[in-house]
Design a protein around this nucleic acid. Structure first.
Lengths: 247, 247
DNA sequence: TTGAATGAATTAAACGTTTGTTTGTTAAAA
DNA sequence: TTTTAACAAACAAACGTTTAATTCATTCAA
């Protein structure tokens, strides 16, 4: 069983790196891959994700997970081998989901360069905002220096992948003459991800300070997401656009 | 011993909230407070800070701390009462250090509004960059929802305090007519802290991607700090300044 | 349609460590 | 003498993991 899962993932990995594949293949692979986990396994993974995000990896015991997922403690070792392998499975699942979603933006036509950047911003925002638990875990793991080489590798992959897209979008605009030349791409990426991550981490504070407590959870989420989107687009437009001069 | 420390902190707290005090009083209080901890206690606190930043609170055992600090395990309970109280002592120490540093910026004269904002940016940058370990821990604790009400309280205080300063700086510029009216202050703060925090968390990646591996640790730190400062000042200038119109 | 056989799923209990903390004791300082 | 600092040892609880037994579902010959 385990061997099969690993093989399947290496297969996905291989495809995503060697060639560009159409979306139909992507979703097919994803579906096939997700099918490797039965309902109980996915239940364990999702519960673990929520608890890891809340209390950290070391702060969450396998008994906590088992209790919340309503399974016996030994099932975690039985299904995943170990607690460490469980979080690795979580990373495999989540990163493979978004591994290829990025490519599409570059293929879009009939859009200005700044519009493509806007779409990228919303894409990143949707992804982080829709997977808050997982990205909490990712942030934590980024802070833990070199604890888990396996997971660090996944994070590094994602960063490079996202960085490449950003790079393409900006340099395209630069060669077209509508974007400024001297842009620190890395720092723009840092601002994009840093702002969203920090907004997620401090959203309750934002809610309190802006007196939005009477909004429902859903209303608040859409409100802050819209404001964040506008804020980031504004930041990027002002920074990369060639219209205004900024030393 | 503990009671005395607590009293001292409540005293600091009281002063900082009720009235504005001169710098001489501040440093005097800080010195008195720091003196409450002997060399061995401080050694434990600093080692704990480094390890908590590296491996997280739950991921660090008291034996790890004791070994690195070269003291007996039982000394931690002896001096601080518990592991939980140890991290609380760390938060008391670090937050009280920077609790009153903020006020000074508002008192500065002969500076334009944007210059004051620049000084604030550098001030925040210096503080976060100079206490990376501590702010790693703070970021982690921000992610842990409601685990430690005592520490959450400290973080909340800092956020409010910093938010108030930012608020004052911007509204001063707005009434003077040099800053735009419709600024989402919270999101600007989010971008400021988010960018710096994310830059700290991913600095090794920045180093690798920008091919700066041959720089020494010190050279790299000053370089990225200077770039960050410039980047953030640029962001703020473009965003708050009234010169350019941005919908 | 039966019924033993096979293998996977599930369980309670136990495993050996590691955890944070306490104890009792000794050495030094006040 | 009394207090404080430091230590090794021991403590119970919690940890991740394994074991062994049991239930469940599926298969396949009778």
């Amino acid at each position: 069983m385990f061997v099969k899962i690993k093989q399947s993932f290496d297969f996905v990995f291989f495809i995503s790196y060697v060639c560009i594949v159409g979306l139909e293949i992507v979703s097919a692979v994803r579906k096939e891959m997700a099918m490797e986990y039965n309902a109980k396994q996915l239940q364990i993974i999702y519960v673990a994700e929520r608890l890891f995000a809340m209390k950290g990896f070391a702060g969450t015991s396998v008994r906590d997970i088992a209790q919340e997922a309503d399974v016996n403690v030994s099932m975690i070792s039985y299904y995943f081998g170990s607690k460490e392998k469980l979080i690795e499975a979580l990373f495999e699942l989540r990163t493979s989901e978004s591994r290829l979603r990025i490519e599409n933006i570059l293929l879009l036509e009939d859009l200005t360069h700044i519009q493509k950047v806007y779409i990228m911003i919303d894409s990143v925002l949707d992804r982080l905002w829709g997977n808050q638990c997982f990205h909490n875990i990712m942030m934590r793991e980024q802070l833990s220096s070199e604890r888990t080489p396996y997971i660090s590798q996944h994070i590094l992959e994602l960063k490079i992948k996202n960085g490449e897209l950003m790079n393409r979008l900006i340099t395209d605009g630069q060669t077209a003459g509508v974007f400024r030349k001297n842009i620190d791409l890395s720092l723009m990426t840092t601002t994009l991800y840093g702002t969203i991550n920090h907004a997620i981490a401090t959203q309750e504070f934002y809610r309190k300070i802006n007196k939005l407590e009477d909004l429902s959870e859903e209303e608040f989420r859409t409100l802050i997401k819209r404001r964040l989107s506008q804020h980031l687009k504004n930041l990027f437009k002002l920074t990369v656009s060639n219209e205004h001069n900024n030393q």
